[in-house]
């Protein structure tokens, strides 16, 4: 039953792909040479061709070329898609792990101490809704380094979901389990690591999963701003070159890497999950 459901889903998904790509291809055919061109079009030297969204066949061809040599490096303005993605992933991971390093302990503190919760909550509520990109000018001014500023922006946007989820998970650990820790005379540190952390781990990982998703959204925008390297810069650069096939190809790659990052954290979440 389940197997046949999976099978049917695969067929439907595949059919959808064929229909979508087929109609996209069909709608964006280049005008045939035999077709009579208007005088205007002749004058423009085929400018109407340029304005066409490239059809899937062209993008697949480009993808094949790009992916057969993803790590080439021919100077600052011509690097392989692999290198650009690696820069972005690197920034996201550094910012994300620095954020985790701050958010999880602080979340623990807030979750365990109602006093700290009340004291820190106003700051969190004000800082959280700020668009991470709004920090960029300040970061650039203070840090004076575009690379580090991008990492800082990732740091600041990944911190909130992790912080709030950790605090929520920690404060909602079942009273019974805390009582088990108490009756076994565990020290506060032991209680934190042996009872609260495993109990709150699924919630904490949910926060981390949300954070990495946001970080991946933000890095593209951040790199468009700071330039130099990274997939965000690449998309913008190809747009300036009016190479729409590359733009579409990198959009797909952004989606693909985002999905992989999410899958890794989903696997980690499954690893720490438990059934009550």
């Amino acid at each position: 039953m389940l197997k046949s459901l999976n099978f049917k889903a695969t067929i439907v998904a595949f059919l959808l792909l064929v229909v979508l790509l087929g109609s996209w291809e069909w709608m964006n055919q280049k005008p045939q040479a035999t077709q009579a061109l208007s005088e205007y079009e002749l004058l423009m030297g085929g400018a109407s061709q340029q304005a066409q969204v490239p059809p899937p066949s062209e993008i697949i061809k480009l993808a094949y070329e790009e992916l057969s040599n993803p790590f080439y490096d021919a100077g600052p303005n011509d690097k392989g898609i692999g290198i650009q993605l690696a820069y972005s992933v690197y920034r996201v991971l550094v910012g994300f792990f620095l954020a985790a390093l701050v958010a999880i302990p602080v979340g623990f503190l807030i979750g365990m101490s109602p006093l700290m919760y009340k004291a820190l909550n106003p700051y969190i509520q004000v800082l959280r809704p700020i668009s991470p990109l709004a920090w960029m000018p300040l970061a650039l001014f203070i840090i004076k380094d575009s690379e580090l500023s991008a990492i800082f922006v990732i740091f600041i946007c990944s911190i909130w979901p992790m912080l709030l989820n950790t605090a929520f998970g920690v404060s909602n650990v079942r009273k019974d389990w805390i009582n088990v820790a108490k009756t076994h005379q565990l020290s506060p540190i032991q209680t934190a690591f042996q009872v609260i952390l495993p109990a709150a781990a699924p919630t904490i990982l949910t926060g981390m999963r949300i954070s990495i998703g946001i970080a991946w959204l933000v890095i593209v925008a951040a790199e468009m701003l700071v330039g130099g390297t990274g997939i965000g810069y690449y998309v913008w650069n190809e747009w300036n070159n009016l190479d729409l096939a590359s733009v579409i190809f990198s959009i797909f790659m952004i989606g693909l890497i985002g999905m992989i990052l999410d899958m890794i954290l989903a696997a980690a979440a499954r690893f720490v999950s438990y059934q009550e």
Partner: peptide, 13 residues
Amino acid sequence: RGVIFQNYSLLPW
């Protein structure tokens, strides 16, 4: 002083 709770209170993980 060991305690046996009504709802068992085992650590589920």
